[in-house]
Amino acid sequence: MLKKKRAIISIASLLVLALLVAYFAYSNATSYVAIINGERITEAEYRFFLYSEKRVMEMDKTQEEIDALWNSKIDGVDATEVVKQNALENAKKYKIQYFKAKEQGLFLNDNDYKSIEDSINVLLGQMSGFEGTRKQAEKSFKEWFGISVKEYRNIVEKLHLGYKFALKEQENNIKVTEQELKDHFKENSGNFIKATANILLFYKRDVPKFYKRDVPNGYTMLTDEEIEESKKKAEEALKEIKDGKRFISVAAKYAEDKKVELEENTEVKMGADMEQEIIDWAVKSNVGDVELIETDLGFNVIEILSLTSFEDERDNVRSVVAGEKYEKILDEWAKDSIYNLELNEKALNKIKVR
């Protein structure tokens, strides 16, 4: 009887061992999506870029529009396949830059690691509302991004190293002529010019003062009569300023009005948390210009105080032009046969976009 029990235990042990071997073999076979230059693009790395591509594709879309997007085709190809291919291409370029950074002996210093860790802590804090535990935040992180914090940290470290290489290339090995700088600025000045302005806002919406311009959608519109009253006040304010009265003096007249708000020395630039209509007008104006700009939020009487020039923005323009040239060089590197991808179709097919 004892021998029989031992035999059963031995068979069970062998079965467990076989299952473990099979599991690890399967896990190893699906833990990467491709091999490039002898190194794997891990599933976590691919998911990172896939998530980034999804965010770009879904940006500024309603849920209904997002659903329609992922059931559509782009140039005859399923949108899901397009985003997967884009993610794979971005993962490839990420690896190429990492390889080249290592070839040049670049490395991350203590400040780099601290910066990365600080950014991760902020991200986790935001996910937990700065109230939950670290464990809860990391769980939410994995549910949201599809990768662990440890995997994310490893990817960001490699990205940071690749960025160091890219910056070094742009600064030392990419030439940008003066004419190229001036031409780019002329064609894209609105992307670079920064303005400061005084803005006297006459609301069209019922918005608490403390929200200022970062206004959540859903606040109710004022009545038609109240909106017409706001417009009339804004037009009166504009006329007084154009007739020679100081902007601040005119604004003082409305200081007690809860439907009016003054923002002094406000920075206006591309990407600012501000209505696009204001940005579009401000970056094309001259110092001293005053205008009434209507937005969804209200009627804005705006006075331009300062504007940056080409000379002010020269370094930023060069960074953009050099960056565009670098991207073209990176595209050429990606065509080199040593960076051809050996795809793991089994792993790729297992990963779903939605």
Rank of each mutant, 00 (worst) to 15 (best):
L2M: 11
K3I: 06
K5N: 04
K5L: 12
R6F: 15
I8P: 01
I9V: 14
A12N: 11
L15H: 04
L15A: 11
V16P: 02
A18I: 09
Y26C: 12
Y26T: 12
S31F: 08
Y32F: 12
A34L: 12
I35F: 08
I35D: 10
N37R: 13
G38W: 04
R40H: 09
E43I: 13
F49L: 08
L50P: 15
S52Q: 13
S52Y: 13
S52H: 11
M57S: 13
E58K: 10
K61N: 03
K61F: 02
T62F: 03
Q63P: 10
E65Q: 14
I74D: 07
V82M: 02
V83D: 11
K84G: 01
K93V: 07
Y94R: 13
Q104K: 14
Q104G: 04
F107S: 13
D110S: 13
S115R: 15
E117I: 00
E117P: 01
N121K: 10
Q126M: 09
M127C: 02
G129P: 01
Q136I: 03
A137I: 07
E138Y: 02
E138P: 02
S140Q: 08
W144K: 13
I147A: 05
V149D: 02
E151N: 04
Q170P: 11
Q170I: 15
N172V: 08
N173H: 15
I174T: 07
K175Q: 11
K175R: 07
T177Y: 09
T177Q: 07
K182S: 15
D183N: 15
G190D: 07
V207P: 09
F210C: 06
F210D: 14
P216C: 04
P216L: 06
L222G: 05
L222C: 04
T223W: 03
E225I: 14
I227V: 14
E228T: 15
K233I: 05
E235F: 09
E235Y: 11
D243Q: 10
G244H: 14
K245Y: 03
K245C: 03
I248E: 15
K253L: 08
E256D: 04
E256C: 03
K258F: 10
E264L: 10
N265D: 15
G271E: 14
I279Y: 07
D280V: 06
D280W: 01
W281V: 07
S285K: 00
V287C: 00
G288L: 01
E291P: 00
E291F: 05
E294G: 00
L297N: 12
G298L: 00
E303R: 04
I304N: 02
S306E: 04
L307P: 02
S309I: 00
V320D: 10
E324R: 05
K325M: 10
D336T: 06
I338C: 07
L343Y: 09
N344D: 04
N344Q: 08
A347P: 13
A347M: 14
I351W: 03
R354F: 12
